[in-house]
């Protein structure tokens, strides 16, 4: 899983997944973002090996698909930890101590934003507003929003991620 894929490594599993998902969207090139989201949900990341298959299915150049994958923050080129925690760094959360929260979390997990913990349990990422600005500071654990986050709440979240 953690092995790096290269352009030459045309893993059939990844290419097949890409083709199947593209077909679900009628191979429509305008659905590329949706297709990439689904592929990432399925494989955990967007492997390089999937790109030529996607380009072919959607009748796009490989450069076009690559350009889209790299433009958007959501698409990851490498597998993440078992859980992804996004910490809001935007203004409303800043006003409630988000910067201090980020430092505390980084110390607690012993990783920086953008990194994965040594046990592979958690990937820590920055977010810029999660729409929970009245209950700041906010984090998102996978798809679940958490508000009014403090050290104690965060420790509970981490314990759940690791259990």
């Amino acid at each position: 899983m953690s092995q790096k894929t290269t352009l030459l490594d045309l893993s059939p599993r990844e290419a097949t997944a890409a083709r199947e998902i593209a077909l679900r969207y009628g191979n429509r090139p305008d659905a590329l973002l949706e297709i990439l989201h689904d592929l990432q949900e399925h494989l955990g990341f967007i492997p390089e090996a999937a790109l030529p298959a996607l380009a072919k299915a959607l009748n796009l150049s490989r450069a076009e698909v690559h350009g889209v994958v790299t433009f958007y923050h959501d698409y990851r080129r490498e597998p993440a930890g078992r859980h992804v925690i996004k910490v809001c760094r935007a203004e409303a959360c800043q006003s409630m101590g988000a910067n201090e929260l980020v430092s505390m979390i980084e110390r607690f997990l012993k990783v920086k934003l953008g990194q994965t913990t040594a046990d592979g349990a958690i990937t820590l990422e920055a977010a810029y507003c999660l729409g929970n600005c009245a209950l700041s500071p906010a984090v998102m654990v996978d798809d679940k929003l958490v508000g009014r986050v403090d050290a104690k709440k965060f420790e509970t979240i981490v314990a759940e991620c690791r259990s």
Binding site: L33, H37, L58
Partner: peptide, 22 residues
């Protein structure tokens, strides 16, 4: 769905995104 890009709130960037582009 968007994909984590603030600029896609700008209407023409949103159109590009809806067309499956950067």
């Amino acid at each position: 769905r968007g994909a984590g890009a603030y600029i896609c709130g700008e209407e023409t960037a949103m159109l590009e995104s809806l067309e499956g582009k950067r």
